[in-house]
């Protein structure tokens, strides 16, 4: 029997104790994931991804949640059976950093081998957003791979830069701000 999709509803302002309890200091529940996706023993090049989310008025959003799903350093998506301890999934709220940044400590994903450039898959949730938004993070220093990426190629050229994380001041740090609206509006996808 055909069933209809349950409608999405906003995550609201008070998700933190349920979804990101450890990050926000709630001890009654242990979170399934946080911004620390990789430890010192995880194989691969270190990646620290930092960014802020800006609303239509240019204000930083202090109560959003960002989720990341990514391949490991060999380009393989974890299937729960690997022994490396790398789950490929991270979650971070923007409410614990004074500048409302999200921060992920992870590794650089490898190429998938299907023509796609290395990337992180992102879901964005926040109060005011009736359903979540999908986007992707590519790396500005992967120009050659990005040029032939089949997903980036569907994005109008003048908007592709909104999907590129830029190297920061320290090695392994990349910056990726998300703009919900305006001139620099981030590209969102409908997969």
């Amino acid at each position: 029997m055909r069933r209809r999709q349950t409608p999405s509803q906003t995550v609201g302002p008070f998700f933190a104790f349920g979804l990101t309890p450890g990050q926000y200091g709630y001890s009654a529940l242990t979170g399934i994931a946080d911004g620390t996706m990789a430890g010192p023993d995880t194989p691969g090049r270190r990646l620290r991804l930092e960014g802020r989310i800006f609303d239509a008025g240019g204000e930083t959003v202090p109560d959003a949640m960002v989720e990341i799903w990514q391949a490991d350093a060999t380009g393989r998506y974890p299937d729960g059976r690997s022994n490396t301890g790398f789950a490929g999934f991270g979650r971070c709220g923007t409410g614990t950093d004074p500048e409302h940044r999200f921060v992920f400590e992870t590794i650089r994903p490898g190429p998938l081998g299907d023509g796609q450039a290395p990337h992180l898959n992102v879901i964005l949730f926040m109060r005011g957003m009736p359903r979540h938004a999908f986007t992707r993070v590519y790396f500005a220093d992967e120009a050659e791979a990005n040029a032939s990426d089949p997903v980036l190629s569907t994005v109008p050229p003048e908007r592709r830069s909104t999907l590129l994380a830029a190297p920061g001041s320290r090695d392994g740090v990349y910056l990726f701000d998300i703009h919900l609206r305006g001139e620099r509006e981030t590209v969102f996808f409908e997969p």
Binding site: Q116, G128, L180
Partner: peptide
């Protein structure tokens, strides 16, 4: 929902391994 949602339509994405 006015200030916190994308202003432009989402771009259709052919589903990949990701």
């Amino acid at each position: 929902s006015v200030s916190r949602s994308p202003g432009r339509p989402a771009i259709p994405l052919v589903q990949t391994l990701s």
